[in-house]
Computed example of a mutant assay.
Amino acid sequence: MPATATLPRTLTAPAMSEVRTRFADYLELTKPKIAMMALVTVAVGYFLGAAPSANIAVLLHTLIGAGLVAAGGSALNHWLERRADSQMHRTLNRPLPGGRMRPAEVFSFGVTLAIVGVVYLLVAVPHSSAAIAAAATGFLYVAVYTPLKRVTAWNTVVGAIPGALPPVIGWCAARGTISADAVCLFAILFVWQLPHFYSIAFLHRTDYARGGMKMLPCVERPDGFWTGVASVATAALLLAVGLTPFFFGSARWLFLVGSALLGVWFLARTVRFAKLRNDRTARSVLRGSLVYLAGVMALLVIDWMLPRYLG
């Protein structure tokens, strides 16, 4: 009697779909878009700090470690905000409020990533200060900023601290110490986040209020007057802070002129938002903030970093 051929076991279509869904859920927990933006500033901080002798291996190790810490912090943010997410329309389908993952699973995932990321930086990067900066970033984001979102509108200012630390992680990986140049990078990222997140909070003010988040547009006058004022004030401060690399000798005239033009252009968008205060002008501020940040980072690379590497 001939032997019966045995077909290789393969996943059925429903099983493959479940695998893809699980992968997508784990990926969503890490907030990849935010993580990628942060890692770009880590890389800029490293290249500026290492110029003119960057070590690509050290950079890659730094990005891996910082990326793991960022991913872990984002997962823990999902865990902490699962109840608020279940009340907001834009977050209803996240893995936890959507019922596709259990809180313990998300908590374990986040803690594991964060710890592995810090340990990886300690082992793979020559300067331990990079791991310390990454650990501080994760701790402030998860344990301080996230809970404050339900307590006070000042959470945006506090949250800007961990949001501004990624380039410092890169700088520390390159040099091991913090200098005035690193402080300039931190200051630019810190102030930039304020008008950036005020615009996001204004666009999602109804949802944030539904979830119990004490964002500025949710706790002030219904017409958003103080959000407009805060946006203009912080954009004006950003215009000034954006020039500090030149005055500290970190950048030259190209950066000064370019940064000033970008700062004035962005300030004009916030002034328009303060006058009209609607979703269209708020979205203009949001998009303008992204253009400003990309422009300033590019100017730093062109005006500061490239001459050191090419000269």
Rank of each mutant, 00 (worst) to 15 (best):
A233R: 01
W192P: 06
H61V: 02
M88W: 05
N77R: 12
M88E: 10
L63T: 04
Y145I: 05
T177N: 14
A50G: 10
S74M: 10
T156N: 07
W265F: 10
V157S: 11
L216I: 10
D85N: 01
R9T: 12
W265M: 02
T30I: 03
A35L: 15
P14Q: 11
T244I: 06
L39T: 09
A260L: 06
W171Q: 06
P14T: 05
L140R: 04
I115Y: 03
A130V: 05
R308F: 05
L68E: 04
A180P: 05
L194Q: 07
G72C: 01
A13I: 11
R20D: 10
R221G: 06
I169E: 08
S259L: 01
G311V: 02
L299Y: 00
F273E: 09
Y145G: 09
L189N: 08
P8C: 03
V296D: 02
D303Y: 00
P166H: 09
D25S: 09
V69T: 04
A43W: 00
L68H: 04
S86I: 08
A187S: 14
V125S: 00
T244S: 13
V285P: 08
G295T: 01
A182E: 00
G249K: 05
L300M: 12
P167T: 07
G45M: 01
V119L: 06
F273S: 06
E18F: 12
T270V: 03
N155H: 11
L122E: 08
G138F: 00
G49H: 02
S17M: 13
L11D: 09
V264R: 09
V69A: 01
L310A: 13
V106M: 04
F107V: 14
T206Q: 12
A131Y: 00
V291W: 07
R82Q: 15
L48K: 06
G49N: 05
A233Y: 00
N77E: 07
A75Y: 01
L60T: 14
V257T: 08
L148T: 07
R83F: 12
F23R: 09
F246H: 14
P95F: 04
K33Q: 13
A104M: 14
F107C: 07
M1I: 13
Y141M: 03
L63C: 09
E28F: 12
S179K: 10
A240S: 10
I34H: 03
L39R: 02
T10R: 15
